[in-house]
Design a protein around this nucleic acid. Sequence first.
DNA 1: CTGAAAGCGCTTACAG
DNA 2: CTGAAAGCGCTTACAG
Lengths: 352, 352
Amino acid sequence: MAMATGREIAELCGVSVATVSRVFNQPETVNEETRERVLRVAGELGYRPNESARALSTKQSTMIGLVWDTDHRRPGWRHPYLQDLLIGLKSALSAHGYHLLMLATSGDSRAVGASLADPVGYVNLARRHHLGGLVLIDSGSDAEAFEAFAQSGLPCVAVDVAVDGPNATYVMSDNAAGAGSAVRHLAGLGHSRIATITGPPGNQPAEARISGYRKAIREAGLPLREDYLVTGDFYRASGTAAMRRLLALDEPPTAVFAASDEMAVGALLAARAEGLRVPEDLALVGFDDIEIASVVDPALTTVAQDKPGFGVAAAKAVMAMITGADREGPVILPTQLVIRDSCGSTSAHDVR
Amino acid sequence: MAMATGREIAELCGVSVATVSRVFNQPETVNEETRERVLRVAGELGYRPNESARALSTKQSTMIGLVWDTDHRRPGWRHPYLQDLLIGLKSALSAHGYHLLMLATSGDSRAVGASLADPVGYVNLARRHHLGGLVLIDSGSDAEAFEAFAQSGLPCVAVDVAVDGPNATYVMSDNAAGAGSAVRHLAGLGHSRIATITGPPGNQPAEARISGYRKAIREAGLPLREDYLVTGDFYRASGTAAMRRLLALDEPPTAVFAASDEMAVGALLAARAEGLRVPEDLALVGFDDIEIASVVDPALTTVAQDKPGFGVAAAKAVMAMITGADREGPVILPTQLVIRDSCGSTSAHDVR
DNA sequence: CTGAAAGCGCTTACAG
DNA sequence: CTGAAAGCGCTTACAG
């Protein structure tokens, strides 16, 4: 059973195809009686305007492109909360009747795919498909490539990368505030030797978390020790390495804020290997609140990001650009400190 | 800068649009010199045929639809390995120049979205977009709805659900064999009281894992005790509840095979709460090998599924249907037992 | 090997 | 309120 076409509906209803089209696009301009007849017949035959034809004619499809580079140089790389992001994105987009097109990525630039090495390939794809806009998901080091998208004029919203352009915006957690809340929690527990394991240099959320850390340390009246600032890369192994370095210090920290849960877990492993007990000998706070945070032992206190919120906000932002709503600034999502067992309780620490 | 059209290229090259089109679709039919001229000009202007127009004309887009129900009745539901599946799917599809369209889902059936309650909505969408086929991802209880897709005639490949239809197939782990390997490992370690925590009744992988368990128990010469078969639902909490029930038995098991890592973690928690040590007092094997498996303490021995492999196989299967290759049967993926610390070592158990 | 023409299924000024 | 017509950008028999 092939799809019914507008022409068939028109004939069955004794109207022109133009009228059928109007029923679906500007229903208020067509006589109520005709409209209902068309709607009824269309309903019976399961008719809906063909999307390819519609996109060709209007130069606007009901699809938003997703740029997510899976052929990433870093092999085992995984996005910390892709599924939640997609859930939020998809459901918010669905509410507007939009689908999400995961654009093919191809190493070479021939064929259909594009690659981040060549952003115009993606922009081209977007135009050829009449996409309404693009959602850009950072896989760690795409900031530069994203800048090119933002300049293209196409509605773009980046997640976790601050881009700027005629039709571009981004959504990001309030990373500085989140880091601050972690440090304050630690300081409030009586710690004065609080170190941090950072994300990779150049990464915006990573940098913001560092400033948040610095600011909170200062505000707590604690000394800012550069040897308490160890560079990681968000991955677990780097957390382990960083923790070892911290533990080797003459005056090792009693508390550590890791800029990702993965690194926090790595740090936990390192601490355990050194015979330290968490939280008794070492307090630990992570960032993200991914699933493993609640499953490690002790369960990790962490700065939770609003994962589906990224998707919802991104969807809202593209839709706003498409419908030409007033342009709003970047979306900054609040974080929330989730207190579990990796820092002990206040009372426990009073004893210290 | 709007996209260049075929007409512009044609004019610049002094040929007809038909020729330009041929250069991209049947290059061998056009004179080499002309072809190269067109290709060069097209390259300079970044021209590529518009996808909407092409799809309208050929009735075939370069998109595969993804049916993934996020508005699932089970609120906190997450697919255990969606990201890996998508990575495999996307990269294999990309190799064929296909994109992945995540179809909008809408609770109500109006608007653009469809819902699993109404599979024809999706099939309709597929036709309106001229999708090459559909990949169906089970969110726990979609088997029935998927049957409807399979009957539609549209190329469909389901993940983790055995569907059948004129143009449908599926990819699934060898769940029975996987469960068997878990039980054999436990039996090999000297356990004779091996219980299992199952997935939800009716779920095909869950059922297959149960048969695998039964078969292996039998083959190990152990008695099949119905009280050692406790029903779970793949979620963590059900693992905890099931474990409590097992521990309350007059003759509690010394080893448990949980049909998912989540349930294994739940079981681990319950065992710990009862003061049991894992693996000393209780050996535990999970299924899936998701990230938490390696992060819990003790690290979980588990039956690993080839997660990206699902995506790759699904992509291959749809592409084969689209290109009309000989129809192959369902793809059964091998599993692999990953031995970590939750079962102890053979020697440790010899002492027992 | 190449062009003119029809057609894919819709939308939207333009008349009436 | 409605229809005839043009156009969106491509592909593919059909002639030549």
